[in-house]
């Protein structure tokens, strides 16, 4: 057992630093995906709840497609398909060889899936806000943007934070898929460690434990955020 622990040492002798670097990449990939996923999801939710039929149709097609494909397949299509498309575009100008960055491919694929799901969360949150509120805000002389920013958005955050927390936890776990496109995330670095030490049980357990800690910490953090944005909901007896 002791010699297994020493395997986790820092530096060239152990795998501790590799696992830490992998964890860092996993977390940064998830964090980098988040703003895009949220922004696109919000835009799509606005389209879905707008009265315009054509806008709704376009938004629904997006959600249906990216909700209906396995994440692994989306990732491979973005990675290999992106490679082919990029190569063709570059070939128009030079004959240089370009390679799709794995991190960007992972970000795009996970962002597509995340935004499809988050748009559903936002859309149902929009439905929870009575139309009378932005209308009343405009009647008071606010511009549409002011009404959105000051009246709709704060309530939207409160109504969607629970669903978004779940999506974040799912995203954190789904980043493990990028290990198949040779991106050195936590799971791939673990694979490398297993390949060289022949200790799969130990290293995969360690990796899963790290994922578990990441989930636990983010669940705690998101719980605190949720309590903060919902502080106005508490009723005094």
């Amino acid at each position: 057992m002791m010699d297994l622990i020493t395997q986790l040492a820092w530096g060239p002798g152990g795998w501790g630093d590799e696992l830490a670097a992998g964890t860092l990449l996993t977390v940064s990939l998830a964090l980098a995906t988040l703003p895009f996923g949220l922004a696109i999801g919000l835009l799509i939710a606005v389209a879905k709840t707008s009265g315009e039929k054509s806008l709704q149709t376009a938004a629904n097609i997006y959600t249906t497609i990216f909700r209906g494909l396995p994440e692994l397949l989306t990732l491979l299509i973005v990675y290999y398909g992106g490679q082919i498309i990029l190569q063709r575009i570059v070939a128009l100008f030079t004959d240089a060889y370009v390679e799709v960055n794995g991190f960007v491919a992972g970000m795009v694929a996970l962002g597509l899936v995340f935004s499809a799901f988050s748009s559903e969360v936002f859309a149902s949150a929009f439905k929870g806000i009575p139309v009378g509120q932005p209308e009343a805000a405009q009647a008071l002389g606010m511009t549409r943007w002011q009404a959105f920013r000051l009246v709709t958005l704060p309530q939207l955050i409160r109504l969607s934070i629970g669903g978004l927390s779940n999506l974040w936890l799912i995203l954190l776990k789904e980043t493990s898929l990028v290990s198949v496109i040779a991106l050195n995330d936590l799971l791939r670095n673990t694979n490398v460690a297993v390949g060289s030490t022949k200790q799969p049980l130990f290293f995969y357990s360690v990796a899963l434990l790290i994922y578990l800690v990441l989930s636990l910490v983010s669940a705690k953090g998101l719980g605190a955020v949720e309590a903060h944005v919902k502080r106005g909901e508490q009723r005094t007896a």
Partner: peptide, 13 residues
């Protein structure tokens, strides 16, 4: 709380 991919690797390897 853990990715199914990791669970599968743990089981298989």
């Amino acid at each position: 709380g853990t990715p199914i991919l990791g669970q599968m690797f743990l089981m298989y390897y």
